[in-house]
Nucleic acid binder design. Structure first.
Lengths: 211, 211
DNA sequence: TGCATAATCGCATTCATTGCGAAAATGCGT
DNA sequence: ACGCATTTTCGCAATGAATGCGATTATGCA
């Protein structure tokens, strides 16, 4: 899932192989359980050798998260490359919007992925670690916004709240059609509430300090 | 690290064995690295068989976190058993105060633990998963306070902010004496700022809704 | 076509983890 | 102090993930 620019023939083939492995693996995980599926079975289903699976993925867990691939890099880029005057929360908002397109086109796979993750503590931990990396990116960006240090309380709280809303938006499903994610308008309404919360928190803290 | 009431002779011995394993393991991890230390080495250093190490701990990672033991249970208890009229944040505040006593008496071990954790991605993930469990407890308690559902935004944001401050308080060290944790007064001052943030956020959200 | 390069593979090794049954230690009543 | 029931510890074997290394095969380009 590395960011590939030059679509050399070789590269495309590699991407296809990686994608195949991840896809059949997810199927097997969903059907037979994550723990009960061995690398050997995945290799066979993907028609490659077990050794090849291990060269593509540093760990069994990583296969499950191949879908999410470059998310972190894209978030980092969105934060780094945000236009002057646009703050972190605004950048996060538009990043979520752009990620949504991807989510929509992979809704089934993602829901399958979620089911697999929830069934294994190791995968849950892996996911939390990934989300924590998002949080670190946000802390740094927010610290710049607020003219504070990443170790300070405000950027930390703001970032954790931001991550909380991202988490909610990624996993929450429509109450009626449990398989479908919330519609955009709904998501953005929730995001704006989160924004209100964060701004309210920051302001409250500033007022208290001013006192 | 199960909650032991009856201190039967056998139980005490078991606790001692567990504690010994965890202690020598932490030493080895710190000295030689987590990955480079094998269960066999730990077993030898603790003077038990490798098999015994595995019966005490479900995974190598769990050895590192033996110290933290019943923290989650204690938090759950603190939230469940809080006096009527005391809200979640107040309960969390006094829980942190009571945990501090433990932290103080194990400062060296905890700092050693931290060093080991930061050096391994798997351990970082494991820790994030534990912290996330704290967050789930807080979400549920806060949802009750706010008369909302655990899936709603406000308890989630409040809980994630609460976890952020807990995280900061557990890891932040005094700027002068890097090895010592922040003094109580400092910690409580920070906690109260977090409280201000959360209350400010919740109020802002309510006002926005009232509009 | 032929060659340089890169992808795959096979094999062997290390290590964590688990099940199972045996062996040793313990605690308790007599 | 003794013997028995229970619990803890252990040894052994098996499974499976992950990795290093060198061989083998496939690929793309001149």
């Amino acid at each position: 899932m590395a960011v590939e620019h030059q679509e050399s023939l070789r590269e495309r083939k590699k991407q296809k192989t990686r994608e195949t492995i991840a896809r059949v693996a997810l199927d097997l995980f969903a059907k037979n359980g994550y723990q009960r599926t061995t690398i050997a079975q995945i290799a066979e289903a993907a028609d490659v050798s077990p050794r090849t699976v291990s060269t593509y993925f540093p760990a069994k867990e990583a296969i499950v998260f191949d879908l999410n691939g470059d998310m972190k890099e894209r978030l980092a880029e969105a934060l780094r490359g945000r236009p002057a005057g646009e703050n972190t929360m605004e950048a996060l908002r538009s990043w979520i919007l752009s990620e949504r397109k991807f989510w929509e086109t992979h809704e089934e796979q993602l829901s399958c992925q979620r089911q697999v993750i929830e069934g294994d503590d190791g995968l849950i931990a892996y996911e939390r670690a990934q989300i924590h990396e998002f949080e670190v990116l946000l802390v740094e960006a927010l610290a710049v916004d607020l003219e504070l240090e990443p170790d300070d309380l405000e950027p930390r709280m703001a970032a954790s709240a931001a991550v909380a809303v991202f988490d909610l938006l990624s996993t929450e499903k429509r109450p009626e059609v449990k398989s479908e994610m919330l519609p955009v308008e709904e998501q953005m309404k929730i995001f704006d509430q989160a924004l209100t919360f964060v701004v309210g928190g920051v302001n409250a803290l500033r007022e208290a300090r001013g006192t």
